[in-house]
Nucleic acid binder design. Structure first.
Length: 494
RNA sequence: GGGGGUGUAACUCAGUCGGUAGAGUAACGGCCUUUUAAGCCGUGAGCCGUGGGUUCGAGUCCCACCGCCCCCA
């Protein structure tokens, strides 16, 4: 008889004994109140306050005529103590023989402490809320198999407290980002995910089809072009937090669907974002980082990258380095000289044939420079050739007023002064189309150009990769560990 | 797409030179009314990822395939 057969047998005996293994819930004490009671009372006092708590049984310690069990809910673990002499022999035997790790249980009784000081509900009554029919890994060992952790995230969350906490931090970080922007008068908006033209970034899109209109549509690779249409309409500060989809490889830093924060700020210039980004990131690391909580001064996070790990210091200001300077330093190439870039690319065995200079430059930067950008660094003054949606810098037409933020060798953010000249934008779109690059749109987004004809105020835009930011906050080296249900190849097994 | 690694009980993992499949936990039975990885005694538990091959004999060696992980393109 295997584990689930045993549990079905117990289910029958519990039902026969009057339990409702899949019944309705009931009102329960807030465990924060319990914490207050425990904090206020005399630790030596007899249990007095009557409480009712519920949770999942994560440990069972059977002493024959009494038993301890740990009940875990979202607030943590609380011990309950069940005694035969209190609940009566029939009830006691029914629960003792029927309970398993993983079951949900409600317990009411006096709240107090054991001789060893452990906060405990001394149960006068206990009621099964839900029977768990599948064997749960014991908490002490957890669930280590990464494939099971991703395919059955519910088991991972239930068995691995650090995974549970990681996703709580992700949620807190998202809430903090919204609060940060709303405090600065940014308005959250929702723009389409289904795009007739996949624009706003260089990436291969997912293609889908709408039956009634009988048209192919793309899952968005970026919300950028829609958000900027809103600036034309008069909204001056907008942001969107949402999923982007890029039909590309999977890696520890890439998932085909990922979460991006994009914000647009009318009348600002690209580099106006820098102090805001410094404040947002250092606040996030201090308030929500896995290693920063509770310490107002600490803005560092210890990352398990490399052999020894690395400490990343998010205290502002972050370093600023120009793109050309970094490319010169680490790739010995001139960012504005095509022959020099091609020569450096060949040295690094980067494909040159049939590829645009923007792609070659980007690959060269990725191969030679990114790994060196461990401490938070704003890379500034991107070559205009690789910034098709950016306005040229007034001081130097070769570059855009564009930056990317790197930390721990990862790109975290990308922002710039937005191009708002419709004729210039049209020319750049036409150049993209004629390049026949599969990562660039195959047709010109004439409606976007038309929107610009109505007039878009000068503006600064930014995109922040939320998943990677959460990786930094939680010192997690794999994007799959900060995405609840990462993409895996489906299996036929049940 | 290429290379490397990995897959053994519900969970975490051993398995030597090719020679009867192992431990802890969980489960089951027994004892135990303050434990907290509870303890003690006992029992059952396996498509060794899948399919071929070599061999008297394969978890182990070879080939292919599948999943997952890492690196590279």
């Amino acid at each position: 008889m295997d584990v689930s057969e045993e549990r079905l047998r117990k289910l029958d005996s519990l039902v026969a004994g009057g339990e409702e293994p899949f019944g309705v819930g009931q009102g329960l004490a807030d465990r924060r109140l319990i914490a207050e009671i425990l904090g206020a009372e005399d630790p030596d006092a007899e249990p007095q306050a009557g409480v009712c708590i519920a949770g999942r049984v994560t440990a069972l310690r059977d002493h024959g005529n009494s038993m301890f069990f740990d009940l875990r809910d979202v607030s943590g673990r609380l011990q309950a103590y069940l005694q035969k002499k209190v609940v009566g022999p029939e009830r006691f035997e029914l629960l003792k023989n029927g309970l398993d790790l993983g079951d949900f249980l409600a317990v009411s009784g006096g709240l107090g402490r054991t001789r060893k000081g452990e906060p405990t509900v001394f149960a006068s009554a206990a009621q099964l809320l839900t029977k768990s029919l599948a064997g749960m890994p014991k908490e002490h060992f957890g669930l280590a198999d990464v494939e099971t952790r991703y395919r059955q995230r519910y088991v991972d969350l239930a068995a691995n407290p650090e995974s549970f906490e990681r996703f709580q931090i992700r949620s807190q970080a998202l809430a903090e980002m919204r609060r940060f922007l709303e405090q600065r008068a940014f308005m959250e908006v929702e723009t389409p995910v289904l795009h007739p033209i996949a624009g706003g970034a260089a990436a291969k899109p997912f293609i889908t089809h709408h039956n009634t209109l009988d048209i192919d549509l793309y899952l968005r690779i970026a919300p950028e072009l829609y958000l900027k249409r809103l600036l034309v309409g008069g909204f001056e500060r907008v942001f969107e937090i949402g999923r982007n989809f890029r039909n590309e490889g999977l890696s520890p830093r890439h998932n085909p669907e990922f979460t991006m924060l994009e914000a647009y700020w009318a009348y600002a210039r690209g580099y106006d974002w820098l102090p805001l980004v410094e404040t947002l990131l250092s606040d996030l690391v201090r308030e929500h980082g896995a290693f920063g909580r509770g310490d107002a001064e600490l803005r560092e996070t210890q990352l398990p990258w490399g052999d020894a790990g690395v400490v990343v210091d998010f205290a502002p200001p972050f370093a600023r380095r120009s793109y050309a300077e970094l490319l010169r330093e680490h790739a010995d190439a001139d960012a504005f000289d095509e022959a020099s870039l091609h020569a450096a690319a060949r040295r690094e065995q980067i494909d040159v044939e049939g590829r645009t200079i923007a792609q070659v430059t980007d690959d060269l930067f990725g191969a030679c420079v990114e790994e060196h950008l461990v401490q938070p660094t704003f890379v500034t003054d991107f070559p205009l050739t690789m910034s098709p949606l950016s306005k040229a810098a007034p001081e130097d037409a070769r570059v855009a007023e564009r930056f990317e933020l790197f930390a721990a060798g990862m790109e975290l953010a990308n922002g710039f002064s937005e191009l708002n000249d419709p004729a210039e934008q049209l020319a750049r779109f036409e150049a993209q189309v004629s390049s026949r690059d599969p990562e660039l749109p195959s047709e010109v987004d004439h409606d976007y150009v038309n929107a610009l004809r109505y007039g878009m105020p000068p503006a600064a835009g930014i995109g922040i990769g939320v998943d990677r930011l959460v990786m930094l906050l939680t010192a997690t080296p794999t994007i799959r560990d900060v995405i609840l249900f990462p993409l895996l190849r489906p299996t036929g097994r049940s």
